[in-house]
Design a protein around this nucleic acid. Structure first.
Length: 566
DNA sequence: TTAGGGTTAG
């Protein structure tokens, strides 16, 4: 009885167990389960062996507990032995609970095919069996197999639907995730906070405020508003930040009755993304005054905040105090943040030294941060070193070839540009085309590619852009020809710059909205567009928010929140 | 007494 009550006190439970003269299979199983939940996990298997030696026959719960333990320590060979036992001892292999936990063990250990085989051979299956496998497919990135299973599911409950919604969101398919969620609602299936978190995360990826408000309303109406639900609240903070509305993110943070490390970290990361470095630091200092311990993500957020504000000294201090004061050992990712901080602020040599002396093998993020800094500060020599490592670590990463080639282009080393481009072509790698999208007043999303003249309003857009350009020139704007990374004439460079997708999106935004213009770009905003939009915000008196693949830029009255540091 | 969850970096 006592054993069943509190598995957290499993050691104590074990002492009590030892005083029982003739423990029955259920008592044995309760203790085995206790260890399977709390650990040490191997102890549950040891106990099982004792139980067998005593001549006690297991029950189906015994195997469920054992599979749980094997899944927890990722010991598939032990799992296979237990699997064999279920067959040897007769009947257990066809038990529904045993089968389900066996699937769980295999997929946890990374043996999805074995889990599928168990599933296919089960005489009876229930929603749990199906959902386990659906989730396993979504986690392995195989959304087709997950979708096929889901379609074949005769009755779909909230958990199964949620598995699909979340799986799609986690696999960068936010539109499909929202589509599934709407179908789920149409089917009359209830929603809880887990479903909502999946939908909110999908909306965060879309970065569109219309969807953000829609998701918030649903959360409030379903009774899982941020005030009383810390998980939904944290997801909303992240969503609003990624949709460009850091003020609303902060409002959510403030109304939350309970906050945890996710809420704080999401808010810190949100501030960092929006260039509010001091707010991020302040929140970090608030956090360390609470009982909540910062974790590795918190530090990524704080260090990124320092990077975006060029706060080298503060970043250095935080990095050095991570382990000693907060017990978080810096990982390769934290080193990447530091390399980024040092490199972007122009300390390229020190950044390189840090990479060469860090205690673990530098990963792609570390070399990538160094390469990115070389592009900004025009250092082809160090760029070459970083790129050679990146070509090894990430042979298919087209971005690395582009960064290296752009570094050469900025230095006017056109032969090297050609060489790198040829190398990328030889590997069959193609550059992702740049595109931007912008919301109209009605909340409709319009997409623009560079040089794109396919929009129905393209002549009006072109006219607006020409007018704006003239006014900007009168105000001192000079096109930044260094932003064109092709070896062409200056006139051609000017022509190319004029139709960059973010400029088209800006012109459309000016024509079709009357408040803040919100633009999302799939790649990093170029220097000329940054300069252009800065000027436009001053001349037109309109605020512009651009989310590029790195962060947010808030343009207001001729200035950007990133302080021209991005 | 088996199934679904939130934050991260170039």
């Amino acid at each position: 009885m006592l054993i069943k009550v509190d598995t957290r006190m499993v050691t104590y439970a074990h002492l009590v167990f030892n005083q029982v003269k003739y423990p029955n299979p259920f008592l044995w199983t309760a203790l085995i389960r206790g260890y399977a939940i709390q650990g040490p996990f191997k102890k549950s298997v040891m106990l099982y062996n004792c139980m067998r030696r005593e001549g006690i026959g297991p029950v189906s719960f015994t195997f469920s507990a054992l599979f749980k333990a094997c899944g927890a320590v990722l010991d598939v060979s032990l799992g296979r032995q237990i699997h064999a036992q279920t067959i040897l001892l007769g009947g257990f292999a066809s038990d529904l609970f045993v089968g389900n936990t066996m699937i769980g063990m295999y997929v946890n250990c990374g043996f999805l095919d074995c889990g599928r085989k168990v599933f296919d051979e089960m005489p009876d299956r229930d929603l749990v069996s199906w959902t386990e496998l659906i989730v396993a497919y979504t986690k392995s990135g195989d959304m087709n197999s997950a979708g096929e299973l889901f379609v074949g599911l005769p009755v779909k409950d909230m958990v199964a639907w949620t598995a699909m919604v979340t799986g799609l969101a986690q696999n960068a398919k936010p539109k499909e995730a929202i589509d599934y969620f709407e179908r789920m609602q149409n089917a009359g299936v209830e929603t809880d906070e887990v479903t909502l978190v999946g939908v909110i995360s999908a909306c965060a990826q879309l970065g569109v405020s219309k969807y953000a408000n829609w998701a918030r309303n649903i959360a409030e109406k379903s009774g899982f508003g941020p005030t009383h639900n810390v998980v939904v609240g944290s997801a909303l903070i992240d969503m609003y930040s990624k949709c460009g509305n850091v003020e609303e993110a902060l409002k959510v943070f403030e109304i939350m009755k309970e906050r945890n490390v996710f809420s704080y970290s999401s808010m810190i990361v949100g501030f960092a993304m929006h260039g509010r470095a001091h707010a991020a630091m302040q929140l970090f200092h608030d956090l360390v005054k609470t009982d909540i311990k910062p974790n590795r993500v918190t530090f990524v957020g704080v260090l990124t905040a320092c990077t975006h504000a060029g706060m080298v000294e503060q970043g250095r201090q935080i990095f050095e105090s991570m382990e000693e004061f907060y017990g978080v050992a810096p990982s390769a990712n934290h080193y990447a943040c530091m390399v980024d901080l040092l490199g972007r602020s122009g300390h390229l040599k020190e950044a390189l030294e840090l990479v060469q002396t860090m205690p673990m093998e530098p990963n792609g993020g570390v070399w990538g941060a160094l390469l990115g800094s070389c592009r900004i500060h025009g250092n082809p020599d160090i760029a070459q070193v970083a790129a050679s490592h990146l070509f090894e670590l990430e042979p298919d990463g087209i971005g690395n070839y582009i960064l290296l080639s752009n570094t050469y282009a900025s230095a006017g080393m056109w032969d090297d540009v050609a060489r790198v481009r040829k190398l990328a072509r030889k590997k069959g790698l193609q550059k992702n085309p740049a595109f931007s999208w912008v919301e109209s007043k009605e909340g409709v999303v319009h997409e623009f590619f560079a040089g794109d003249m396919t929009h129905p309003k393209c002549s009006e857009i072109k006219q607006a852009l020409d007018d704006l350009l003239e006014r900007l020139k009168a105000n001192g704007y000079q096109p930044n020809l260094g932003s064109v990374l092709y070896d062409v004439s200056d006139d051609e460079k000017k022509r190319l710059l004029k139709t960059h997708c973010e400029k088209l999106a800006l012109a459309f935004g000016l024509l079709s909205t009357d408040s803040t213009i919100r633009i999302v770009k799939n790649l990093r905003i170029c220097e000329d567009c940054h300069l252009f939009i800065c000027g436009a915000s001053q001349i037109t008196g309109r605020d512009v928010v651009v989310r590029d693949n790195m962060r947010f830029h808030h343009f207001h009255d001729g200035k950007c929140s990133c302080g021209n540091f991005w």
